[in-house]
């Protein structure tokens, strides 16, 4: 299992041809208390960099972009019911959605943990 990161502060956990996607702990700390999450519909085809989900704090709304192209195969309904999970467990229970990876070549442009740590340093 590989974890990759985007410069927009999303993480991707790659298992076979499925990527589980969430936002990083750094991202949640910048957003503040999350009060609302809007998830994409299962079956939706997302293009890389397309707005896929919305995460809202008391102050503001932010888009979560599809880090790669793919079809939404599962969304985390628990997150819609309990948006605060994003603050308490951004890298774990607060995953947003799972994508069936369309082009594994797109993964090459993403950061590994060390590169992401340097990016947020």
């Amino acid at each position: 299992m590989t974890t990759l990161y985007t410069s927009d502060h999303e993480w991707l956990r790659i298992e076979g041809d499925v990527a589980t996607i969430g936002i990083t702990d750094y991202a949640q700390s910048q957003l503040g208390d999350v009060v609302f999450v809007e998830l994409p519909k299962v079956g939706r085809s997302l293009k890389k960099a397309e707005a896929a989900a919305v995460v809202e704090s008391v102050k503001a709304a932010s888009d979560v972009y599809a880090p790669i192209t793919g079809e939404v195969v599962e969304v985390n309904e628990a997150l819609a019911a309990e948006p605060a999970l994003v603050n308490s467990d951004a890298g774990g229970k607060a995953w947003f959605f799972k994508l069936k990876i369309a082009d594994k070549g797109e993964l090459g442009g993403l950061m590994d943990e060390a590169a992401y740590a340097a990016h947020t340093a």
Binding site: G32, D33, V58
Partner: peptide, 12 residues
Amino acid sequence: PVQYTAGVLKEH
């Protein structure tokens, strides 16, 4: 200051 370490929700 837009918020302190507690954050907007707890401060409210």
